[in-house]
Computed example of a mutant assay.
Amino acid sequence: MRHPYATPEQLAAWTGAPAPPDAGRLLARAAEDIDSALLTAVYRVDEDGAPIEPAIIAALADATCAQAEHWLATGDDGTGAGSVWDSVSIGPVSLSGRHSPPSPASGVELAPRADRVLRQAGLTPGRVIAW
C-alpha cells in the first residue's frame, strides 16, 4: 500500500484545526483520489514510485489535505456516499433528491481546492507526449 502524501500534522496545519482521530484513514483515501487524478501526469519518482522534486511533493501534500478538508467540511468520509441523497427519512422510509454529480474525466471527483493545487503545479490536465 502506498503511503499517503500528507500527514495528520499537515492536515491540521492546512485546516487550522486539530486533525480528526481517523485522519490517517482519511488522508490515505484522499491520496487514492489524487493518484487517480494523476494517471497521465509526468513527474520524477524514486525507485518506490514516490515523487522526488520538493515542489511536486508539496503540491501532492497540499492537494491531499485539500481533498480531506473538503470531506470534513461536507461530512463525507471519503467513500463518496455522503452526497448520494439530499434528504433521508427512516420511517416510513423516504429517500429523495438523488444527487449524481457529473463524472469527471479522471473518474474521481476532486475538491475544488485540490484540483486547483494540482493544476497550478502543472500536474493536471495530463497529456500524452510522443518522444
Rank of each mutant, 00 (worst) to 15 (best):
M1L: 11
R2L: 07
R2P: 14
H3N: 04
Y5K: 00
T7K: 00
P8K: 01
L11C: 00
W14M: 00
T15L: 01
A17G: 00
P20H: 05
P20M: 07
P21E: 14
P21I: 11
P21D: 15
D22M: 09
A23V: 05
A23H: 05
R29D: 11
R29M: 13
A30E: 13
A30R: 01
A30G: 06
A31Q: 06
A31W: 07
E32C: 01
D35C: 03
D35R: 14
S36L: 14
L39S: 13
Y43C: 04
R44F: 13
V45L: 08
D46R: 06
D46I: 05
E47N: 13
E47K: 08
E47R: 13
D48W: 09
G49Q: 10
G49L: 10
G49H: 08
A50C: 09
E53Q: 15
A55I: 06
I56W: 06
I56E: 09
I56F: 07
A59V: 03
A61G: 13
A61Q: 04
D62E: 14
A63S: 11
T64K: 00
C65V: 09
A66T: 05
A68Y: 10
A68V: 09
E69P: 04
E69W: 14
L72N: 04
A73N: 15
T74C: 07
D76R: 02
D76W: 04
D77M: 00
D77K: 01
T79G: 15
A81D: 09
G82W: 03
G82I: 00
S83M: 08
V88A: 15
V88S: 10
G91Y: 14
G91N: 13
P92A: 12
S94Q: 09
S94D: 07
S94E: 13
S96H: 03
H99A: 04
S100K: 06
S100E: 10
P101I: 04
P102N: 03
P102H: 07
A105M: 08
V108E: 06
V108R: 00
E109G: 09
E109V: 06
L110V: 04
A111N: 01
R113A: 13
D115M: 02
V117M: 04
L118T: 02
R119V: 02
Q120Y: 03
L123G: 11
L123C: 03
L123T: 06
T124E: 01
T124I: 15
P125W: 13
G126R: 06
R127L: 13
V128A: 12
A130H: 11
A130I: 10
W131Y: 08
